[in-house]
């Protein structure tokens, strides 16, 4: 072994010298503290087992007497999700072009679009729902707007990434031909990004269906309203029917979307 080579080795981990030590200690302290702070205890879980059992017993057998109204609010829920997602995807499209490093016409629009998308994404959907319920009022429109904003936060980001990942070769070729910006976008960028775009859109529809259920809990329309009413009146057997219906809806949407996804990926 040649000793003169030692100096060329990258440094070892040196704990005692590391100025990260206090940070590590704070993190460890915080994690340990968190466990005690949330009052996690086996005894409280064990003690509540009878109540859990009671709850599940009251769920069964589900009460199907209001199935008509459950189905119609379920369909409304899906419609809220669908309309919100479609609006969101349409609006995401131009925003994500501005928000992609490679396609953005200028730096200002790039940062603006990024900021809008981040804001829409980082504020949780429940807060948007409350905001829209308070401002535009109770009902499906608050749900649609919430899903729309949520979709822009999601698709805006993933569409932009899809545009950034497009092979630069064909874009360069069309530039060399003398094609304009719009032609290049339509002929090279979007066709190449299409599978990603469809994929993200389907995911956001699935996500929207799931969150549109929760949105009803704060009054933004749909089946969540029914669920909250049933729960508030301790009609757990009715709630069971609703939960079952939601489960089936989510399952159907996920199945159909994965089938569509498979079809899209087969081409090219």
């Amino acid at each position: 072994m040649n000793n003169s080579n030692f100096s060329k080795l990258p440094p070892r981990f040196n704990f005692s010298k590391s100025y990260y030590v206090p940070i590590y200690l704070v993190i460890i302290y915080f994690v340990v503290k968190s466990f005690s702070q949330v009052e996690l205890s086996f005894s409280s879980i064990i003690n509540s087992l009878p109540e859990m059992k009671q709850f599940f017993q009251e769920l069964f057998p589900p009460d199907f007497s209001r199935i008509d109204s459950v189905i119609s609010s379920l369909i409304l829920t899906f419609q809220i999700a669908l309309v919100g997602t479609i609006l969101g995807i349409f609006i995401s499209f131009p925003i994500s072009i501005f928000a992609s490093r490679t396609q953005s016409p200028n730096k200002f629009l790039y940062f603006l679009a990024r900021a809008v998308v981040s804001l829409f994404r980082t504020v949780p959907d429940l807060i948007w729902a409350i905001f829209f319920v308070v401002t535009v009022g109770l009902g499906p429109i608050a749900g649609v707007l919430t899903i729309m904003v949520d979709t822009i936060g999601f698709c805006g980001r993933f569409f932009a990434e899809a545009f950034e990942e497009v092979d630069p070769g064909p874009v360069k070729a069309l530039n060399a031909i003398g094609a304009g910006k719009l032609s290049t976008l339509m002929c090279a960028v979007i066709p190449s990004a299409l599978p990603s775009l469809v994929n993200s859109s389907l995911f956001s529809l699935e996500k929207a269906v799931r969150s549109s259920v929760v949105l009803g809990l704060v009054g933004a329309g749909g089946i969540g309203v029914e669920l909250k009413t049933a729960m508030d009146m301790f009609r757990f057997d009715e709630a069971a029917t609703i939960i079952l219906a939601i489960f089936i809806l989510v399952l159907i949407v996920e199945r159909v979307s994965s089938w569509v996804r498979g079809k899209i990926m087969e081409v090219g």
Binding site: P170, I177, A179, C187, A188, S192, L194, P195, G268
Partner: peptide, 19 residues
């Protein structure tokens, strides 16, 4: 540098995009 997901004919027609 063809656009893989488009047809051969579309790719050729793109040659006219400048004019």
């Amino acid at each position: 540098n063809l656009v893989n997901r488009l047809g051969v004919l579309s790719n050729i027609i793109h040659g006219k995009l400048s004019t």
